[in-house]
Design a protein around this nucleic acid. Structure first.
Lengths: 132, 132
DNA sequence: CTAATTGTCAAGCTAATACTTAAGTATTTT
DNA sequence: AAAATACTTAAGTATTAGCTTGACAATTAG
């Protein structure tokens, strides 16, 4: 999985229209995809199900969610592209499983936020100590 | 910050319309709000900026993002409700800062996913060992 | 072989959303 | 006091997206 942390490219050049801006021309990074994927409650529920109950079929995902197969397939597509889920079709059954590695980008991003913030916090502490 | 992990309540009763379902009547949990907030690249960029550069004003957030103040204010609202950001107005300037505690829900969620998955993985390992 | 099951794909529908503008308020500077 | 600055709020706009239906294909069961 290509690892391009950061939120680059979300701001295109000056826009000419008043409505919602269309998606950036810049390809989405790994982090973009993962956070986008988990930004939806249904998709989070899918990942949760796969982590706790293991590999299940598309139908088995759809049932408790009370949504159509087609809706599930759409979500799975997003999850697969993000690297959080892997699916495999054997016969007419597609089995879905969670990819734990997919969570690493999130952890890294959070970790980075923390350490950058901590660094600033510490610097402030030093400044205050200096003034005494 | 109320801590209600999990993705409950995203699936309402049988729907009567074909369009996108409207938001669940059930109140969004902390995790819902945090993931929803970070599901947007602009909001992630805001959090990144606050973590690395420290407290900045609304204007200072808007400038590099090349979006209007009003847009930033909308994003800040989402971020504040999620607990990731805190703002404070002194005079005419509103200063925004990152709340590191807001990241904990994410870490917990990811952590849970990992351990549940790992548990299943280990169980499978035991089964296979048993068969030999 | 037919019927049932599982999934796929395309198109449509409706709600959400990320931005804008415009008008206004409050504070600070000149 | 007037002008400039920083923000706020409401309403509008265009795009995205999460769901559905309908038609179809492939596999399995009877």
């Amino acid at each position: 999985m290509t690892d391009r942390s950061g939120s680059g490219g979300h701001r295109p050049a000056a826009r000419l229209s008043k409505g919602r801006p269309s998606e950036s021309a810049r390809p989405a990074s790994g982090v973009d995809r993962v956070f986008h994927a988990l930004g939806d409650p249904t998709r989070r529920a899918i990942v949760e199900k796969l982590s706790s109950e293991g590999p299940v079929s598309v139908s088995q995902l759809a049932a408790p969610l009370l949504i159509t197969l087609a809706a599930v397939v759409q979500h799975l597509q997003v999850l697969e592209v993000s690297g959080l889920v892997r699916t495999e079709k054997v016969g007419r059954v597609r089995t879905c499983r969670m990819e734990p590695a997919g969570l690493m980008l999130i952890e890294q991003w959070v970790s980075e936020r923390r350490s950058l913030w901590q660094r600033r916090f510490d610097r402030l502490g030093d400044l205050l100590a200096e003034e005494e």
